[in-house]
Design a protein around this nucleic acid. Structure first.
Lengths: 142, 142
DNA sequence: CTAATTGCAAACGGTTTGCATCTTT
DNA sequence: AAAGATGCAAACCGTTTGCAATTAG
């Protein structure tokens, strides 16, 4: 998991500079684990303490963090994209409640067999996958 | 599978009118199975024979067809969305080659067990899912 | 007839980009 | 210093919307 310490190293290793904005953005993401913030969300939070920050910087930083593998882009079929820090734990996916919009995370160990299958059947080397399940959570199913 | 005949019935059943544009758009989708056209693609194809058609009509029609379950919206993490006729066959998903961008379809019967699991473990009623696998197809893996 | 549909053009909204100014290293 | 990063505002671009004109039932 990317903490503020490793940020410095990862940036340096790639010839990027450690700026105050980059630290702030990573901090917001770390502090909001499981909340899936959008770029605007992050921008609004940062403006409280740092009114001068620019939305473009947030977008540029998120793009950089994605490239560096620190952050993952999420798409819940909304207008905006969301972002989360790439966890150290198992890869996970989301259950999206169509009623209350709650998002529940689950890990995907079970999928490994399935991927093995694909590799053989289609002679396709899987490097990544994305999946989303839609339906009704325990509070919303009648 | 929605053919031009059933279109009439489905529209009528929902108090929508059968227009020339709607027929044309469905036809293009049917003629391009497996190609995953975008709204603009469809618009360009239709303009050849019907220069007067409007892009807004294409968008409105695709939205309607999605509501009616005739068409499915696809998201391959590109700028544009793509569309395909909702097949009569098994539900399917896509393998996306990161090198040549080829898209290979596969069906998802294997996932049923997995979904059963989710239902129980998270007490979540799954109604739909989307998944995409990324990697390298047989021609692109070295 | 009349309610739905269309085409046009303008608006929208999230994201990206150009550029001059400031920060890191 | 030199290279990079930032903030601002303007541009982008796929999609949506308002509206007057057209068309299906």
């Amino acid at each position: 998991m990317a903490d503020l310490n490793s940020l410095k190293n990862i940036l340096a290793a790639n010839n990027y500079k450690l700026t105050s904005q980059r630290k702030q953005i990573l901090k917001v993401l770390l502090d909001s684990q499981g909340e899936h913030l959008s770029a605007e969300d992050i921008y609004e939070i940062l403006k409280e303490d740092n009114p001068g920050i620019g939305l473009a910087t947030v977008y540029r930083t998120l793009e950089l963090f994605c490239e560096l593998g620190l952050v993952q882009e999420l798409d819940f079929d909304e207008e905006r994209k969301r972002y989360e820090v790439e966890g150290e734990g198992a890869h996970h996916h989301h259950l999206i409640c169509l009623n209350c919009n709650k998002i529940i995370e689950f890990n995907d160990e079970i999928l490994e067999d399935f991927e093995q299958n694909l590799q053989q059947e289609y002679n396709f080397e899987v490097t990544e996958h994305k999946m989303k399940f839609y339906g009704y959570c325990k509070d919303c199913k009648e």
